[in-house]
Simulated scan of single mutants.
Amino acid sequence: MVYQRARDQAELSAIQEAYHLVSKRMEGVPGLLGNELLRSAHDPSGLVVMSRWSDLAAFQAWEQGSEHRADTAPLRPYQDTRMEIPFGVYEVDAAY
């Protein structure tokens, strides 16, 4: 999950555009199952890009690859700097 922040409507539109561009760039990345752009119901300036991966190893291989930074560059200016760390990596601990 990568946390984003839209300070106004123009930034929200820019984030949405960047999200679609990044998603197209990442089509076909091994192990990537999909992603979503989520907007906070409590803080309209807060957004999250949530990606789903087949496993942690696939994510780590992509993250350590040479294309990772270039693929995600359009979203980087909108990372939520209110947070100490603007991203999180989670594994499923339990599910129904």
Rank of each mutant, 00 (worst) to 15 (best):
L33Y: 06
A94R: 12
M1K: 09
E17I: 06
S13T: 13
D80H: 09
R7E: 13
L21T: 15
A70F: 02
P86F: 08
E36V: 06
P74K: 03
V89N: 11
Y3Q: 01
Q9D: 14
Y78I: 00
P77L: 09
S54V: 13
G34S: 07
R7V: 08
A57C: 02
Q60N: 12
V48T: 11
E84Q: 13
E63V: 03
H68G: 00
R5E: 09
T72R: 02
D55T: 05
G65E: 00
A94E: 13
A14N: 03
R82N: 14
I15N: 01
A14T: 07
M1H: 11
Q4D: 09
L32P: 00
D8E: 13
W62I: 03
R76M: 14
A41S: 13
M26Q: 14
A61S: 10
W62P: 00
L33M: 15
S45P: 00
G31T: 04
V92A: 13
V92W: 06
H68N: 10
D55C: 14
Q60D: 15
S40N: 07
A95D: 05
A58N: 12
D55F: 05
Q64F: 13
L21E: 15
G65D: 03
E84L: 14
V92P: 01
W53N: 01
S40A: 13
H68W: 08
V49I: 11
D93M: 12
D80A: 11
A41H: 07
A14E: 08
S54I: 10
V89G: 02
R7K: 12
R39F: 02
H42E: 10
V22E: 00
A14V: 05
D93P: 00
L75I: 06
E63I: 02
T81R: 15
L12M: 11
N35C: 04
